[in-house]
Write a protein that binds this DNA or RNA. Structure first.
Length: 590
DNA sequence: GCCGTTTTCGGCCCGACTGTTTTCAGTCG
């Protein structure tokens, strides 16, 4: 049975957000309100499981979680409730906290509706509100008109069919479509996708686009004629927000060329990065906004580039992927920013599935070994590794598995010989082997000997408890033929949660035993996730960025993995597949 | 309530748009 004490990060984020709302309605100190909002936001966005942090007594390591909130959360995990929080929330109807989830309805509006119409039940509150709108009760409320009633109804409809955050490639496609449209206007001089898209976050909630123009009114008029617009949320000469046909929100900013640097900076975010940057400005008696920096005399200094703006504040330019308030501002002040890895540093791909049928229970690739080598050549790679799934253990004896892998080895040898001669690409005979629930490998040792080395990954029993799954992974990694830990958390974005072993133990083991952590570039995986990459960095672990391609075209996924590495602060020296072949050979003992 | 290479006390980012107003509150990013 699930204990009431199993609170997820999002449960806790919501709880703290509700406390902030309650404090707001009680007219508490606005900084206290902001503190709770910040704590909620930190928890919502962190990849670390809060309960794990609590068990390790490390809750206050998260920014915005101090002594007081940590104590409340301690009570929550120990007893299942926080008496202090319950006291704060008690005077407010539960229904209110459902209504504030609807865009456009904030605390003041929500409480007003609940009080005026006696809404109490959180399960039916939204439905009741819709009925009230239909009966024109909302529009006749003081401070509201028919227009706001109509807006609220539209927002409810969108809220109900709200989809989860979309993956990077989908967001790139959508933004490209609107950029192509905007480009048709002669009044628009330059267009840049910003926000989470520019920071290359693994999922995108809304698309932010900056437009350079000397004619903001005309640019706005052009935007509003875009055929995909489903709803205009707001429109002005400095910004506009629209919903396009697949329910994605697009925020557009208009700015003149001479202060475009400040807009780029502002609109790229993240929010917490911007707040910290503005605090740095404040410390110098300056005030930063999307229009530039105001000095003591309130005179606005404009910046045509981001670099000039950061430099003005005494900082080096910070790559967008780092702007998550994970210490990048301090590093920029000390001129100690990492020299981030770049896509062009990649010299090979060690996780590729071919269409060679080795009777696996997982999926085969679509492409032939030859086609994959051809594509790798086009990408200017020096080496690739064929890393198919192991033959299924349920349908084969040990000897059969050995024989299947023998056959595959012969096939690779043939191709290897000609490709190394013709296109000078080294081909490695690898295998992606299942880690069984007890930590043993799904391939007998004799078969392992035929490989150059093995990658191991988990494809079953994801929900083992922390100790069991940690030991399971360590047992598998101990095998001398195992060099790479593939897609370590096993998450599928928007579908399957990451496994939760003791990561610190695993990172430590990998560093000490020369095991390589994979950064899987498949946009559905992006695994390790960037936050864990950043967390593991202090252990001095080595990484490999692989595509896990099941098709030639998927070799292009590499850029997404590189983005994860950059967000995790990695330099090319941390990543083994930036090495030329002769150096890689040494590291992997080949 | 959080936080610190100017501070363990005294600060805490900055601005736009909407609808209802007649100068602004509420919400959002």
């Amino acid at each position: 049975m699930v204990s009431s004490r199993n609170f997820s990060n999002s449960d806790i984020a919501k709880l703290l957000k509700n406390i902030a709302v309650a404090y707001e309605l009680k007219n508490k100190n606005s900084f206290k309100i902001r503190a709770y909002q910040k704590a909620a936001s930190t928890i919502k966005h962190t990849n670390e499981d809060l309960k794990n942090l609590w068990q390790k007594n490390k809750l206050t390591s998260l920014p915005g979680i101090g002594k007081s909130i940590a104590e409340h959360l301690d009570e929550l995990f120990r007893t299942g409730k926080v008496k202090h929080f319950n006291r704060i929330l008690k005077p407010f109807p539960q229904a209110m906290f459902v209504l504030i989830e609807i865009p456009g309805i904030g605390p003041k509006t929500a409480i007003k509706f609940c009080q005026q119409f006696n809404l109490k039940n959180p399960a039916t509150a939204v439905k009741q509100l819709e009925k009230l709108i239909k009966k024109k009760k909302i529009g006749s409320l003081e401070g509201f008109g028919q227009e706001s009633a109509k807006n609220i109804q539209e927002n409810i409809s969108r809220f109900k069919q709200k989809t989860s955050r979309i993956l990077l490639p989908q967001a790139l496609t959508l933004s490209q479509q609107i950029i192509d449209y905007l480009k048709q206007s002669p009044d628009i001089l330059q267009i840049e996708p910003l926000g989470s898209l520019r920071r290359q976050v693994d999922t995108i909630g809304d698309i932010d686009i900056a437009v350079v123009t000397k004619q903001p009114q005309k640019a706005l008029e052009h935007l509003l004629k875009y055929s995909q617009i489903k709803k205009i949320i707001n429109q002005g000469t400095s910004k506009a927000s629209i919903i396009i046909s697949n329910n994605m929100q697009i925020d557009i900013r208009f700015q003149s060329p001479d202060d475009f640097g400040a807009l780029l900076q502002h609109f790229t975010g993240s929010k917490s990065h911007n707040i910290k940057l503005r605090q740095i400005a404040q410390g110098k008696n300056l005030s930063l906004s999307e229009y530039g920096i105001k000095n003591k005399q309130k005179k606005l200094i404009k910046f045509s580039s981001e670099e000039k703006l950061y430099n003005y504040l005494g900082l080096g330019w910070i790559p967008p992927e780092l702007r998550e308030a994970r210490g990048e501002l301090k590093a920029a002040q000390q001129h100690k920013l990492p020299n981030l890895i770049d896509l062009k540093d990649i010299k090979g791909d060690l996780h590729i599935h071919t269409n060679y049928d080795l009777q696996t229970s997982h999926d085969l690739g679509n492409s032939s070994m030859q086609a994959l080598i051809k594509k790798a050549h086009a990408l200017k790679y020096q080496y690739i590794g064929f890393s198919d799934h192991n033959p299924s253990i349920s349908r084969h004896s040990s000897q059969q598995i050995i024989d299947i892998l023998k056959g595959r080895k012969e096939e690779i040898e043939k191709i290897k010989y000609s490709s190394e001669k013709k296109v000078k690409i080294r081909v490695l005979n690898l295998l992606e082997i299942d880690i069984r629930p007890d930590g043993s490998l799904a391939v007998p040792d004799k078969a392992l000997e035929q490989l150059d080395f093995a990658t191991v990954s988990i494809h079953s029993s994801f929900r083992q408890n922390k100790n069991t799954i940690t030991n399971r992974i360590l047992t598998a990694l101990k095998h001398p033929q195992v060099k790479i830990f593939g897609h370590p958390t096993n998450r599928i974005i928007n579908y399957r949660s990451p496994i939760a072993p003791d990561w610190d133990k695993i990172f430590d083991f990998c560093q000490k035993n020369n095991k390589i952590l994979e950064i899987n570039s498949n946009p559905n995986r992006l695994d390790l996730p960037d936050a864990l990459v950043h967390q593991s960095l202090k252990y001095g672990v080595k990484y490999v960025i692989n595509t896990d391609a099941h098709d030639v075209n998927q070799l292009n996924f590499m850029s997404y993995g590189v983005a994860v590495a950059r967000r995790g602060w990695l330099e090319s020296k941390n990543i083994i597949n930036t090495l030329p072949w002769d150096k890689l050979k040494g590291i992997l003992n080949l």
